[in-house]
């Protein structure tokens, strides 16, 4: 079999997920040997013609141009991976979805009329079929490697989906909620980071998005009952993955959510 052609694309995002690929310092040269990097502007100016076997898409869709471009890319790519929480949930820039984009634009830009943006920032899956979602803000580079390895070996990648809590316990991290009263979104957040934040003594802020099958609304209520300031629970859930439907609905379900809700 000839080497699979890999393309890496960027949409509305911070480049951090692409950088995570380049941060595979020990594996990068092997990776480049195992696949044909056919399109990856952040790493190379060489562009091979499509179609491509694997497409890694960083970023969310937030402009009309992006909405068109993702359609073209879908036609070019056989196996499309949404890379990172922007691509899987709309990302931090999806906070605009909870307000009016025009109101935000006047705060930032002198001539908002020059902008060509959509009212919302949305995940790739809202526009085209996505074959695999890799969560994380940023992604875990080893999960990227595992996906590529699995595709090369024609098997399903090993991507567990349990809560961050399980990682805390495996690594012996003491629960910040129980031992400190710190709010933590770990019970509702997907594994992947290895419980980085609780291991540093702070609560998880949900950057790997909702863990499938978790109890989002129950978690939201629990967090709200332990808030240090009104709106803390909403802030935690309405953050990097705040536009993920599970977190959105959990915030909506909060009793008194509307009164406690901060501006966004």
């Amino acid at each position: 079999m000839s080497k699979p052609k890999v393309a890496v694309y960027k949409f509305s995002s911070c480049d951090g997920c692409q950088l995570s690929i380049l941060n595979l310092e020990d594996e990068l040269l092997d990776l480049a040997g195992a696949v044909e990097i056919a399109f990856f502007l952040e790493a190379t100016r060489r562009v091979l013609p499509g179609p491509y076997d694997i497409g890694l898409v960083e970023g969310s869709i937030s402009t009309p141009h992006e909405a068109e471009r993702i359609q073209e890319i879908r036609h070019q790519v056989r196996f499309l991976i949404a890379l990172g929480t922007c691509a899987t949930s709309g990302g931090i820039q999806a906070l605009r979805n909870f307000t009016q984009v025009d109101d935000l634009a006047v705060i930032v830009y002198e001539h908002p009329d020059y902008l060509h943006v959509l009212d919302t920032s949305t995940p790739i899956s809202q526009h085209v079929k996505v074959d695999l979602e890799l969560w994380g803000c940023p992604v875990n580079k080893y999960q990227v490697l595992e996906c590529v390895a699995a595709l090369l070996q024609n098997r399903t990648p090993y991507l567990p989906t349990h809560s961050v809590c399980l990682d805390c316990k495996r690594r012996g991290t003491v629960c910040v909620m129980v031992a400190n009263g710190t709010l933590c979104l770990g019970p509702a957040t997907r594994t992947g980071c290895g419980a980085l934040c609780p291991a540093s003594g702070r609560g998880c802020y949900g950057c790997f998005g909702p863990a499938p099958g978790a109890e989002y609304a129950t978690t939201a209520h629990l967090l709200q009952s332990k808030e240090h300031y009104p709106g803390e629970a909403v802030h935690l859930m309405r953050n990097f993955a705040g536009y993920a439907p599970q977190f959105r609905e959990a915030v909506d379900a909060l009793v008194g959510g509307s009164e406690n809700e901060p501006a966004l």
């Binding site: 399980l166 316990k169 019970p187 099958g213 109890e215 129950t218």
Partner: peptide
């Protein structure tokens, strides 16, 4: 219950 796994761990 949150199905968070802490009790079992």
């Amino acid at each position: 219950c949150l199905s968070c796994t802490n009790c079992t761990q």
